[in-house]
């Protein structure tokens, strides 16, 4: 099967899953007792005012009509209007997505560049001191609550030492880079705005490190064990027997194959992180999808909740798809099918 058919097949298979997700979210968000109309008009409003508001929001229609209307909108690419701030949900998401994307991407990037050498080292020096120390450090990462790390990092590097900037995406005094993507690093690179680049990079360091530490453990372990698998295979033994230097064996022959499962983890983590970095976002005042989602749920902002869910599911599934495509490139034995 060639790649195009593979991808298009997978895309079609996404549709029922997405549909299921919309139904699930829709049902869930509508069984919640609580009236967004009430929240909107303020606590001193009379019943009359609330009633009018409910009508305006279409909250009086029967559930299946509301869902049908929503689906029709969805097909037009319209996620509805946020009840909370009366803005199109699409617009809200479009503003927050780049922030989340940037943070997630950089975190995973840091994670991968640390995890690969560590994973190799621990595999080669299996059961050595290095292996144990790495294991403990990595386990500490996965076992410590994120908010704990976040506050500690801020306290040390921002408050006490002043090496790194505080919360937010960019310094207040620095205008955000001009550009369309909303990804500050990319935009500032494209517009050659070095000041914005420096500022946004520095703002990224702490939250990205905070997030990546959690995934470091998983990834290091994953690379370690797949390295071990590969190093036991016949072709490596043959290479060794032929007297190839160990360095060449590891980097040229073993690593590539050992990376296959790592790609899976990276892909899945990406999907998980993009909407799940809520705590990091709260602590670092990062205007991402996670905190938007929390606010929406607390306000019972149905259109926003659904918009978020659909977006996060889409990203998750896309990440999965990309992983599968990457498999084909990394491992010629795996065919797209």
């Amino acid at each position: 099967m060639n790649m195009v058919t593979f991808v298009s097949r997978r895309l079609v298979a996404m549709v029922p899953v997405l549909l299921g997700v919309t139904i699930l979210t829709f049902l869930l968000s509508h069984v919640i007792p609580g009236d967004p109309a009430r929240l909107l008009v303020g606590q001193k409003a009379s019943d009359e005012v609330v009633k009018r508001m409910r009508e305006e929001l279409g909250l009086n229609d029967p559930l299946h009509i509301q869902y049908w209307n929503y689906l029709k909108q969805l097909l037009r690419g319209d996620l509805g209007t946020s009840i909370r701030n009366r803005r199109p949900v699409v617009q809200d998401l479009a503003e927050r997505f780049p922030a989340s994307f940037e943070l997630t991407f950089v975190s995973l990037f840091i994670c991968v560049i640390i995890a690969i050498p560590l994973g190799i080292l621990t595999a080669v020096r299996r059961n050595h001191v290095v292996d144990h120390v790495t294991r403990v450090l990595a386990l500490l990462g996965v076992s410590t609550p994120v908010f704990w790390w976040g506050l500690l990092l801020l306290l040390i590097f921002y408050f006490r030492l002043g090496w790194l900037p505080g919360p937010g995406r960019i310094d207040l005094a620095v205008p955000p880079p001009a550009g369309r993507t909303g990804l500050y690093i990319l935009d500032s690179l494209l517009s050659r705005d070095w000041r914005a680049l420096g500022s946004s990079l520095r703002h990224l360091v702490l939250p990205a490190f905070c997030l990546s530490y959690v995934y470091l453990a998983i990834m290091t372990r994953m690379i370690r064990s797949s390295m071990l698998d590969v190093l036991n295979l016949d072709y490596i033994r043959t290479a060794r027997a032929n007297g190839l230097p160990e360095r060449a064996i590891i980097f040229r022959h073993a690593l590539r194959n050992a990376l296959v499962p790592t790609v899976t983890i990276v892909g899945l983590s990406f999907g998980e992180l993009i909407g799940g970095a809520i705590l990091t976002e709260t602590i670092f005042a990062w205007p991402g999808l996670g905190s938007y989602m929390v606010d929406s749920v607390l306000f019972l902002d149905f259109p926003a909740i659904m918009g978020c869910t659909i977006l996060v599911c889409l990203i998750y599934m896309t990440a999965n798809l990309v992983v599968d495509i990457a498999y084909g490139f990394l491992d010629p034995r795996i065919r797209w099918g």
Binding site: L28, I32, G34, G275, G276, T309, V312, C313
Partner: peptide
């Protein structure tokens, strides 16, 4: 397994939050 995929794709926190709110 498709239903499992759906749950896997569903953001866990949304589910927790919605359940908690409900």
């Amino acid at each position: 397994m498709r239903v499992m995929d759906m749950i896997l794709a569903f953001p866990a926190l949304v589910l927790c939050m919605v359940l908690a709110a409900a």
